[in-house]
Simulated assay, not measured.
Amino acid sequence: MSEPTLTLSGITKTYNQGTPGEVRVLQGVDLTVNAGEVVALVAPSGAGKSTLLQIAGLLDTPDAGAVQMLGQDMTGKGDRTRTNVRRNDVGFIYQFHHLLPEFSALENITLPQLANGVSESVAVTRAMDLLGKVGVGDRAHHRPAALSGGEQQRVAFCRAMANEPRLLLADEPTGNLDPGTSDQVFGALMDLVSGTGLSALIATHNMELAARMDRVVRLEAGALVAASEEETTDG
């Protein structure tokens, strides 16, 4: 069996540490995401899911605990090592698309590849392939302002996949969309992930979407708890 893509062990995070107003956001979180597994992270607002995703994606560091990425212990690693791992192995998707407004959909997906040393022809071919897979290939040369919300988020998915990451982290990726569009866009995301061997940790409030993933974990009061039967069963 291949090694887990992501392992979080005893992750603790406190803000305003040592002050009367300190807030313990995460309390000894343990989580493993295996290769090819899509895990739903459900949590009430303010429970710490965004903080957990930032720590998992090496954008933040825990006060205690360890983060292993593809078998490599990232605890105490320097900024250069963490940046290289993020650039090569991790893709991020947020609730808002954060596309570069002055560039087309195609350019938003090719630019990360060019920055990673990929030739322009290869980058353009991959970008067009990704856009085609999520059904917006005909919108490749439109800037974000000319795209609908659902189209913008599909392009953001493609950008996150541009450098063929091993781990995808998504924070409420359809939370800014109406229910019908959310369902369609989430389906596009699952189509992108399917068959790639990519691992994903996707935070969502939408329990119908969560039930379509391989496994559901719930974050409450800073700790992971067992998901209910309703959360782990579609329908």
Rank of each mutant, 00 (worst) to 15 (best):
L100I: 15
P165M: 00
L59Q: 07
V134E: 03
G180C: 03
T233F: 15
Q68G: 02
P101C: 09
G150T: 09
G149I: 11
H97Q: 13
V23S: 03
R87M: 02
L6T: 07
V124R: 15
V90I: 00
L99A: 15
I11L: 08
I11K: 08
E37I: 09
L100T: 14
M74K: 03
N108R: 14
G187L: 08
L26E: 05
D63G: 10
D129H: 08
A162L: 03
L70V: 00
T232S: 15
E230M: 12
L106T: 14
V216H: 15
D73N: 05
A105L: 10
T61W: 13
A47M: 10
G46I: 04
D79F: 09
R139T: 05
V225T: 14
V124C: 12
T5L: 01
L99F: 06
G65D: 06
M213A: 02
I202T: 01
L209E: 09
G57A: 01
L167Y: 00
R87I: 00
G197P: 01
V39Y: 06
A115G: 11
A146F: 09
A145S: 10
A160F: 00
V90Y: 07
L192M: 11
A188T: 10
Y15P: 05
L209A: 05
N108E: 13
G117M: 06
N206K: 03
Q54P: 13
M190A: 04
R143T: 14
G149C: 11
N108I: 07
L192S: 03
S45T: 13
I55Y: 15
F103H: 04
L58M: 02
G78F: 06
P144A: 13
E231V: 12
T83H: 08
